[in-house]
Amino acid sequence: MNHSTSKTLNLTLKIWRQAGPDQSGALKTYTLTNISTDMSFLEMLDVLNEQLIANGEEPVAFDHDCREGICGTCGVMINGQAHGPESATTTCQLHMRKFNDGDTILIEPWRAKAFPVVRDLVVDRSAFDRIIQSGGYVSVNTGGAPDANAIPVPGHMQKDAMAAAACIGCGACVASCKNASAMLFVSAKVTHMANLPQGQAERSKRVLSMVATMDAEQFGNCSNTAECEAACPAGIKLSNIAQMNREYMKALLFSCE
């Protein structure tokens, strides 16, 4: 048999509804019937929203864009797990075949002080932008770059940098952490740059500044529980946090910054 057999599901959904940032919210229950197991999770929400519009109820707001797992826009807590039960998968790439007929699915927004709810399942993740803004770059102006092959980057260093740079900025690490810590996100950028020759000039300044911004944005601290690593759809490893710790202490105690 080479083709998947499509089935249909009847589901109960409990979804966080909140009209705005300053309003209070609550879980609301909906039922859906005949959901194809070939649907993505977001397509299931699309069906719900069409049903709500037909019934005169405002649809559920949720963030999404590329729907192929790379833009990092989507992301909700599904039964208490960031992006749902499948590992290394964003919400948009999760398919309904991972659920069973008759299931109750609880859907909540990312919760963190630094990610205030905008509406329903939509949160404000601009704190991530402010962290990058405080140092997540190489200060090079357009036009002045030397030939790309002038500075060799050994294959293994490039691979390490690429693995860290793969972060999609979705915020699942923060959402899944018991402390709402952003360490995995910040460390991905710190190690991406620290592992490349291009990132050396600002190595110390970058980590000090990005961690200071992270703290100021009121993310929690790291308890080394590795929940972030398990929730990360982009496969960012916990070892990045260890490297960031090292980078930070080196910068704090031994650099001139």
């Binding site: 770059a145 790309a148 294959g155 490039q158 940098a161 991406h192």
Partner: peptide
């Protein structure tokens, strides 16, 4: 060609040969 130079300088992790060239 300038685009590749610019992006490499920004820290874009382009695939490399083991010896370090692009």
């Amino acid at each position: 060609t300038s685009i590749i130079d610019q992006c490499a300088a920004q820290g874009v992790p382009f695939a490399r040969e083991y010896g370090g060239s692009l």
